[in-house]
Design a protein around this nucleic acid. Structure first.
Lengths: 196, 196
DNA sequence: ACCTGAACACCGTTCAAGT
DNA sequence: ACCTGAACACCGTTCAAGT
């Protein structure tokens, strides 16, 4: 709300993009925002809370974007967008979906939890539309959504950490793994096929 | 090789298990190992190289264990073991499959790359056995293995970070997602079903 | 070869003041 | 209410010595 608060978040996000997670120090954030090195403590509970505010804003921006271009994206497109975002902004991805200590209760962490819940429900809604259209198997939509997210998240994280494509064997791009899953999910037995 | 080197790795692993990744400081490692706070620099290029040595040993131990109890584990069992290990030792999991700067070339990092390659080839071999037994779909075994690993890794990582089961809705245990994938992979159209 | 102690430039966080 | 400067207890890393 207050201008210096958003200035601090801006500075932290910029440092994150430029120098990775290790470059985001409270002192550098204050320096870049034009305040003293401990002014952040008047706006955030500490370093972790400031980082949570950055993650919450990033998650909110990501959720707000696809709504304009396309009213009802399908689950496959959402997971492709997820992977694309992770590969393009590795530091934001690692921060947003990294570990958040459940005990601490700063304002930024609360915002982050709410933004994450909103993103999750959007994916579940897309899965339900896919099930209604017969493109995805029946069953608990929360669980199908979790499976899709697990593949996208795991593929992106493994790729970023160099654990996916061993030696230039091009065939393990994370987007391909997302497609493999959805192709497999779409290949379920149709109702008319009872020849078993 | 040298005794102090393994003592330093022991100390780092113990600090990692007890206090998480932030507890592993070079000074605390030296203290626990009974040497000065910068003796590690005679055995490792720096902090990252010591951590890589810890990760390489962990990965090697994980690879050596299942060989005794079961000669040829299948891919599903390997992925279940992967998830079980990640949930039980979160800090080791995050360290082992975390980010390793590709530029640096310490001895520990080289060991880690070799151990990761060995683990990967073991999974690919299990996938090939599953394909031969008709339990897994045909196609590039490297890619099927990558899909299985992506689900296991993503499910474990999301679960550890609280992004999987939203509000006590029990139905998103990472092991269940691994089963969902393998159940789906086993539900491929049999050759005799040509009624489409 | 292996280890030590002092030193340097950082860091997060706290605290007593300032306006 | 918001910000500042000094201070505390750390940290990784380097360096000149010691044996």
């Amino acid at each position: 709300m207050t201008p210096t608060r958003v200035r601090l978040i801006d500075a932290a996000a910029r440092l994150l993009d430029e120098g990775g997670t290790t470059a985001v120090t409270l002192r550098a954030v204050g320096r870049l925002a034009g305040v003293s090195h401990n002014a952040p403590y008047k706006h955030f509970a500490g370093k972790e809370d400031l980082l949570a505010a950055v993650a919450a804003r990033e998650l909110g921006d990501r959720g707000a974007r696809p709504d304009r271009s396309r009213a009802e994206p399908d689950a496959r497109q959402l997971m492709h967008a997820y992977v694309r975002w992770a590969l393009r902004y590795p530091a934001r991805f690692k921060l947003t979906f990294g570990a958040w200590s459940p005990g601490s209760a700063g304002s930024g962490i609360a915002d982050l939890a709410a933004a994450a819940a909103a993103a999750r429900s959007g994916l579940v809604a897309a899965v339900e539309r896919g099930q209604a259209a017969g493109e995805l198997p029946a069953g608990d939509p929360d669980r199908v959504a979790a499976l899709a997210l697990a593949v996208a998240h795991g593929a992106a994280d493994l790729a970023l950490n160099g654990h996916l494509s061993p030696a230039g064997k091009g065939h393990a791009r994370p987007q391909d793994l997302v497609d493999d899953l959805f192709d497999q999910l779409g290949r379920q037995l149709p109702a008319r096929c009872r020849c078993g």
